[in-house]
Design a binder for these strands. Sequence first.
DNA 1: AAAAAAATTCAAAGCGCTTTGAATATAGAT
DNA 2: ATCTATATTCAAAGCGCTTTGAATTTTTTT
Lengths: 364, 364
Amino acid sequence: MKQAKNSDTRNWQTENQSAVRKLINLKSLAEHLGLSQTTVSRALNGFPEVNDKTRQLVQAAAQQFNYQPNVRAKRLATGRSMAIGHLVSVSKGHEIVNPIFADFIAGASARYIESGYDLLLSLVPDENELSAYTDLAARDAVDGVIIHTPKEDDKRLERLNELNLPFVVHGRSTKSNEVYNWVDVNNERAFFRATEFLIDLGHRSIALVNGMADLDFAIQRTKGYERALSKHYIDPVNDYILYGEMTEPYGYCSTIALLDGLIPPTAIIASSIPVAIGVRRGIEERGLKMGRDISILSHDDDLCYFRDENDVPVFTSTRSSVREAGYKSANLLIKTIEDPTGQREGILLEADLIIGTSTKPAKS
Amino acid sequence: MKQAKNSDTRNWQTENQSAVRKLINLKSLAEHLGLSQTTVSRALNGFPEVNDKTRQLVQAAAQQFNYQPNVRAKRLATGRSMAIGHLVSVSKGHEIVNPIFADFIAGASARYIESGYDLLLSLVPDENELSAYTDLAARDAVDGVIIHTPKEDDKRLERLNELNLPFVVHGRSTKSNEVYNWVDVNNERAFFRATEFLIDLGHRSIALVNGMADLDFAIQRTKGYERALSKHYIDPVNDYILYGEMTEPYGYCSTIALLDGLIPPTAIIASSIPVAIGVRRGIEERGLKMGRDISILSHDDDLCYFRDENDVPVFTSTRSSVREAGYKSANLLIKTIEDPTGQREGILLEADLIIGTSTKPAKS
DNA sequence: AAAAAAATTCAAAGCGCTTTGAATATAGAT
DNA sequence: ATCTATATTCAAAGCGCTTTGAATTTTTTT
């Protein structure tokens, strides 16, 4: 590996046909202008102690030569990475990359761009999860991280606090004792409202096709669901609560199982739109009609991929934009990075209850 | 902004409770060992001119102090970013972050980890797309990029070649004159086979619910479809080919339109599983049964989120793993980065035609 | 045992930027 | 016109690593 010397680089540039490729660094820009690097650097970075005329000249020259400071040098000099890590754990076997994630990223990314942060994505095999954070911190590769899909008492939070690496959790870890930033939907409330809504329609046998049992949000949703039942003196039925990875086939299989059970429910709450789509398939396969014979209510992360833009949406749902959560998480993280001594903060988003055609009063 | 001096950093570390956080750099490690930085660096990077005993000592010390070279310094010194950019364009209005993308990333990421590259994700508003690449190159932030969802003659390729930035296209740009790396599914062939399969089942009215009309893959799919029709002397019907963003609602609406048309098709080919799910919904809404009354065949990117693990899958499909494409793209890109003078390469993946329950012979 | 060759190690320069502390130019006060 | 005070500019050091070219040690050869 040769080190790219100043002159070499320039030669290579000249030899090369590419006219667009950057060929100037701070040093040559300063030389060209007959100024010191200090002044040029300050002019471009908006420092006040630069003469206005000088600044104009510098800016013009920078534009002319398409000068962009080399990020690597900048990062070394400032001691900041200007990058934020998203570590997604991928379990062996069923390696789901959640589509929710794509939308979340889109929201976060918008915020990062505003402040010039890069978004570093690492898919980490489950078993190395904790050490991945340690490595990231040791290599000093990011200024902060976002934690996805936390467990009820997630060990990652403690580790990150030890490492003193700023972070925000998308979701919460309600059993954790750590102090941390989070952005979460009020899942308990959302599912309480959803369940109560169905109860008000006369439903008494309501099933919940939930996410993985060890994830915090799934636990919250069950809580909300059970609170609504309990408020209306409905005995919870064990077989009515299902946990699993939120895929379309999972929704389908769960529904078949429910419908073939002893007392088929008259309403099903699904934990995501893909699951709800599977539920509908199951219902229809058993010759029933959604809405008429059995109601479906789903949580809707408002993913653009499934966005329902009808006047009256198909699924009645508790809707909360993941993209917005992404933006807010990024915002909170940047705040913490720029002032690490500040208070940690929690942001609770409320889901809207949106009425579609998939829910109807229970037949009496 | 203060520059973090060596001593300051160390003090901060000592003051701090965090025991895990890295507190050693090359210099102090070398001092501790009574060796020069050169030797320590070489020992750790596997250079041959280091005495075996010395290397052992160095490695042991590195382990003991959990020494990890600072990536920022390393990157500046080597002149390499050790990062690969994925620029995803996001169009205003309908800002779809394709779920295919998530799986692709998962595949690519696996390859990056093997070679120590970071994955940099930028969502770029459509209108800045070209300049985004120029900026990235000027800032010298990545060693290479992956291009997603290319148009038939995509201007980005030319730009990247001008910039001399190694890249791989996921998909192809069949009308482009540029020389470039790509990894693509043989869409033409896949859809030719799909269409012919339906024709062999006796179908004569076959609709195609395709992706966006300006995307290369959609064009290839139409070509394959039309070639099959033509081979069997079936006149193409204009209204049978639809283009749009591949969402579930799009599949649904298209199907309703098709079924309510003058001559409803007896088979529908969908461009993705979410579209196929929408198609099925449309069919069922019109009181028809998939398979029995009307056949559906879909392209299946084998996304984990919709993975169908039944013995007999629901949808007959042309299946090709996006994750695999991701891995192979990453591999090709790394090859090009490490030897930029090498030949550009194209990798064509063939889709499997997998028979499910959604296709049946046409009623005669 | 001396000379030549090979194996190790090292000091110092460099990557391209930011930032410090000092120097110079300009304006304001006397 | 002289002396501060203020506004600009600069040279040089530093970020933490890699790499060069030279120096030193060890081994081999004569």
